[in-house]
Amino acid sequence: MTATGKDRDVLARTLWGEARGEGLRGQIAIAWTIRNRVNDGRAKSWWGEGYAGVCQAPYQFSCWNKNDPNFTYICGNKLIPASEFARAHAAADQVIAGSAPDPTGGATHYYATTMPKAPLWAAKAKQTLKLGHHVFFKDVQ
């Protein structure tokens, strides 16, 4: 799939909103989870189409929910700090280009360990990675 400028920008904004405190390695892992959804084969009917479509699909990434405190930043109403946004763009570029390997082992899901409890789907899924404050999964039912 060819990524557009919008795909790159929306992916970087999503990485900042979901993992701004994780550093480049953690943002790359989140970006691979998104790329795995883009390339899943069900993209048009399930996840959304392309990086922007997957990132902005309703209720998939909480930073795009209007009640999320990060939403005002990622939608452009407030400025994301330049150095943080540059790191998110670097992660997005590496994953889109395929120059960074997938550390998640094909994960299509993750959750933040800062959540009060794990989501129900995690109990039956295969955990592939724990990195920073995120746990990654594939084979989610």
Rank of each mutant, 00 (worst) to 15 (best):
Q94P: 00
M115F: 11
N70M: 15
T114W: 08
G23P: 05
L120T: 15
S99A: 09
A90S: 08
G76I: 03
G23T: 06
A43C: 02
N77G: 06
A107K: 08
P81I: 04
C55H: 04
F136L: 00
T104M: 06
A29G: 01
L79E: 15
L79V: 13
P69S: 07
L120F: 15
T108V: 09
I30R: 01
K126T: 14
I30M: 06
R37G: 00
S99D: 10
D139K: 13
D40C: 08
V95N: 04
A123T: 12
A57S: 14
S99Y: 09
F85S: 13
A31E: 08
G41F: 03
R37I: 01
R87D: 09
C55P: 01
L79D: 15
A100D: 05
F61S: 08
F137M: 07
P69Q: 11
P58L: 12
K124V: 12
G17F: 08
G5H: 14
I28Q: 07
W32H: 12
R87M: 12
K124R: 15
T33E: 08
F136M: 00
D9A: 11
G21P: 00
C63P: 09
H134V: 00
R13Y: 03
M1E: 14
M1R: 14
Q127G: 03
A57M: 14
